[in-house]
Design a protein around this nucleic acid. Structure first.
Lengths: 213, 213
DNA sequence: CCGAATCCATAACGATACTG
DNA sequence: CAGTATCGTTATGGATTCGG
């Protein structure tokens, strides 16, 4: 791993030598959501060439960031404890990037894992702590997420479930999270479509997930 | 800048498109210490090729992370307000990398700016708030730093000054900051050499700057 | 089918030299 | 001092192929 180093001694250079290469941090992002198989990673990072994915997985293993775990018949990759400690880094990056996240370009896709991490980024723990437990079923572009907020705990997983509020939205859910759009306006303009449950709950959603730009 | 994108829509991909390329985050790191001239950046990142530095500076300007400011005769680069908001990202990266920072390799150098940011990473604001104002003059490898702690405020700058404690150390100051070495042992083993002032103050330094591994 | 390895064109990077 | 220009090397991207 000393091949592509910076010739400097310090915490930041060290970190960048471990996870600074192209795609590495996105692999970490997806693995922060949960263990993933090779094919799942390839699907979530749909533009990654398979040789690059294979190379990164090897490097991240060699440096102790991830682990390759054979599970009966399938192989999954998961973060080591040290790798999981990258969560603050990934969240900080996400919060920073979110601020200048415009509208999606034509070729940009939304993946369940990236959306999950963006929701974690926007999650306001101290606000949620004072709200009743709530479950949301959100269809965000192609991603179906089941979001449970209980006290200061957040759980996001793929798929559906019994939710207090079910809604559908596209990438412009961002406008709701940034506060650019009020929940009321988001519904009125069709940015958010309420599928089940009281639309008022979208206000709770918006105050739980908020990231000022 | 959409040339090298990831084809995904999300906060983290957005951030990586802006500052994810090689060397970019290190330029940000050094600019977090203060505005720098082209030559200063080149010196601090001594292994960066000048064409890469020039390219990164252009990209970071184009994306609104840094600004090119003509100052009478010289040109300096500085972070925009948006660029400065990368500080939490850089500190989180530094804290993570610090944990597996071993001993320096032969070719690795210590630069004043990287050392400054590492100190900021390790700074414990809430601990410092309960200590009397203290100034340290530290010679860390080739970097001469004048460190002032006043309440929860930290100021690190290059050069010397009237300090309560002056000391010299090498890269293995890391062992003191990680707690691997007690202040007493650090002095006894020669890891830290006290140049002026009461050596006891090194305990205050160690509790002010601490990052568990 | 999953988890890669291989091949090849292209783009980025790195070292050095060069210019206003 | 603040960059450009050039050119060889390396990494990336895309497609295809291989092995269990």
């Amino acid at each position: 791993m000393a091949a592509r180093d910076y010739g400097q001694y310090g915490g930041i250079t060290r970190a960048l030598e471990l996870v600074g290469e192209r795609w590495a941090m996105l692999i970490v992002r997806d693995l922060l959501v949960g263990p993933r198989r090779y094919g799942e990673l390839a699907a979530g990072l749909h533009r990654i060439p398979s040789n690059i994915l294979a190379a990164r997985l090897k490097e991240l293993q060699a440096t102790g960031v991830i682990r390759r775990v054979p599970h009966s018949r399938v192989i999954v990759y998961e973060l080591t404890p040290y790798g999981r400690e990258l969560e603050p880094v990934v969240l900080a990056l996400g919060a920073w990037g979110f601020k200048t996240l415009g509208d999606p370009r034509q070729e940009q896709v939304i993946t369940p894992d990236s959306m999950t991490m963006d929701l974690r980024t926007a999650f306001r723990q101290q606000v949620a702590a004072n709200l009743p437990p709530t479950a949301y079923a959100a269809r965000l572009g192609p991603a179906e997420l089941f979001i449970r907020v209980d006290g200061s705990a957040l759980d996001v997983r793929r798929g559906d479930g019994t939710a207090d509020l079910a809604f559908a939205a596209g990438a412009d859910i961002r406008r709701l999270i940034s506060g650019e759009l009020t929940p009321h306006l988001a519904i009125a303009t069709g940015v958010v479509e309420v599928l089940r449950g009281p639309g008022d709950l979208l206000e709770r959603f918006a105050s739980t997930f908020h990231l000022a730009v």
